[in-house]
Structures are given as C-alpha cells and as structure tokens.
C-alpha cells in the first residue's frame, strides 16, 4: 500500500461512520494538479461507492485561478445545493491538510454517464432523452432558487458585464486577431449590460458535468466555476452549439428543445425566461468557447499536447456559430 493509500484509508476511517476497509482505490482521470479517484469503501458491512476529488499538493489548478473557487468551497456549495433539493452527490468529508492527502473532498459516487456520445446516441437512453431538456429546466430552477445569503461570503459575483470584461481581457492577452470575436464583443456589450438578477450560477452546466442514467439526471458535478450572477448564463451555456455535439437541431445539449427546458424551469418555480436574453447568453457561450480554444493554443505551447493543438484549431467553430447567431439570427 502506498503512502497516499495508507493516509487516505486513515482519513476514511476517521471521517466515515462504520468504515471497515476500502476494497479498491483507483485513479480515474485528471490533470497534473487535480485528480479524481474512485473508492469502494465498506461501511457497516455494506459497500459504498465514493469519489475523491483532490489536488495532491493542496494547490488549486493553475489555469484560471482567478475564477475558480477552491475545493473546500466547492464542497460547501454542493452541500448547500443538496439541502435545497438540487441533485448532487452527498459530500462525506472535506480533507484537512493534516490528513496528508492534499486538499479536496470525498463524496458519493452516483450511477450514470457523462459521455455525450452515449447520452445522445446509445439506445439505453432512447426513452429518457426526450425528457432531459425538461429535467434540465427543473434542475436549473432548483439551483437558481438556492438561498445565496450564506454563499455570498464565499462566492464571487460575476454578472454579464464582469464576465464579458474578463473574457475580453483573456482574448486581448492572447494577441491573435479574430474579427468575428471582436464583432461579438461589440454586439454583446449593450445586450449583457446587466439585468440585476443575482442567483447562484453553476457556471459550467453542460455535457460532461451532467450525470445521466436511463432514469434521468442523477447529479450535477464540477462546481468549481460556481458564482453569483445571471441565471440565464447557465441556460445559454447548455444551449451553446459546441455542447450539442453535432445534433445542432436539438438546441438543449443536443437532446432537447428550448421550450421543454423553459416549461420545466417555470413549473419548478424558476420564473419567466426572456428568450431574446437566452440567445444573448448563447452568443456569449460561443464567444467564451472561442476564447477557450485560443487558450488551448497557449497551453499547447507549454506542453505540446496533440489534443490541445487540435482544440486550438476549433476556434473557427465558435466563429461560425457566432455568424449564425449574430448575422443570421439563428439559434
């Protein structure tokens, strides 16, 4: 058993009631500074599937630090959401530095898939697929109704104008000309000028972070970009064409229609949705994705990863989506 596994087992024994032993501890994925581990822990004689999210040396991801909340804050947000009825995994323990396993937290491992190809095309999801847009609306309504008074001290406020400024700064720093992105910034400035709405925003509500089984949405993952801001940001991001994975006609994540999402949102108390404003946030989503692709090139220059190189060349998909949206008025 490695030092890490020994320290982790000791942490589990301290944090989990009835913990007996771990039958497996397996690294799933993650970059150099953020890791995901699957743990099978026996508690009171019953196997519990768990997930550990951690950064080994206690440091958060280097990229984008100004925008990301720490893992301990993420755990607080997840628990606040769970108490408010949002489908999220239950957090079992937040790591302390004295545990010697880095920073992060341990949560339940829920069933389901996050891979878009499977969710959009596997026959196992044929029955649930037409219901997913409405479920997304319901879940988003529950997130946007979370009482933020307790979260205000730990989450940044990032509204439309602040986000636009942020991505303008990142775009400028890349110093590479994209006339379509310039046009999109100009187009958005008066349109995202601030609606005054301030709710909890997940910040990355899209395929990959939606855990879906043939029964429906099981849990919402990866809260590291959570902030307080305009709730329509989440809806626009979910509807951004790059997240439809080739099923462009299904505006919501490649699986559903906007009207179904809106119906679910309103039925769950989320309130009226201004569709014109959703479109503005979709424009923002494509612009943000385009600037993120430019950022992939910067990362590529550091690590020469062929995957990042290829994503760098995807900036043009954002350009073409922005042209469809701004010039042709097509969502």
């Amino acid at each position: 058993m490695s030092d890490f596994q020994f320290a982790l087992t000791r942490t589990l024994a301290k944090a989990l009631p009835g913990f007996e032993h771990a039958t497996s501890i397996t690294r799933l994925s993650g970059g150099a500074s953020q890791e995901t581990w699957a743990i099978d822990a026996v508690m009171f004689g019953v196997n519990h599937p768990l997930i550990l999210r951690r950064s080994p040396d206690g440091k958060e991801r280097a990229l984008d630090t100004s925008h990301q909340i720490g893992l301990a804050t993420e755990a607080v947000v997840i628990e606040t959401c769970r108490e408010a009825g949002v489908p999220v995994p239950r957090v079992r323990c937040v790591l302390q530095s004295k545990d010697g396993v880095g920073s992060g937290y341990i949560m339940d491992r829920l069933p389901g898939e996050t891979t878009p190809r499977k969710i959009l095309h596997d026959t196992a999801f044929d029955e649930i697929r037409p219901l997913l847009a409405r479920q997304c609306g319901e879940v988003l309504a529950s997130i946007h109704q979370v009482d933020v008074s307790a979260l205000r001290t730990i989450l940044p406020v990032q509204d439309g104008p602040a986000l636009l400024r942020r991505y303008r700064d990142i775009y400028d720093a890349h110093d590479y000309p994209h006339p379509v992105f310039e046009l999109a910034f100009k187009w958005l400035e008066p349109r995202l000028a601030g609606t005054g709405l301030q709710t909890l925003v997940h910040g990355d509500f899209r395929h990959g972070n939606l855990l879906i089984s043939p029964r429906g949405i099981e849990g919402i993952l990866d809260w590291e970009l959570a902030h307080i801001g305009d709730p329509l940001e989440d809806i626009g991001w979910l509807c951004t064409n790059s997240w439809r994975f080739g099923v462009a006609g299904k505006v919501v994540g490649g699986f559903g229609d906007l009207q179904d999402l809106v119906a679910g949102y309103q039925a769950s108390g989320g309130g009226e949705i201004d569709l014109e404003q959703v479109k503005n946030w979709i424009v923002y989503g494509s612009l943000k994705w385009g600037v993120m692709c430019m950022g992939m090139y910067q990362s590529f220059r550091a690590d020469h990863s062929v995957e990042r190189a290829a994503i760098g060349r995807r900036a043009v998909e954002a350009e073409s989506d922005l042209i469809n949206l701004i010039i042709h008025g097509k969502i």
């Binding site: 995807r314 043009v316 998909e317 073409s320 469809n324």
Partner: peptide
C-alpha cells in the same frame, strides 16, 4: 472566411 477555415479545420462541424 469562416466557411473556408471550417473546410480546413472541421469539415464535419454543424456550424454553417
């Protein structure tokens, strides 16, 4: 310009 760049970088993209 976007059309030409798509034809090089992502000919299968749903975009335009």
């Amino acid at each position: 310009t976007a059309r030409d760049k798509l034809a090089i970088n992502q000919p299968d993209y749903s975009g335009l």
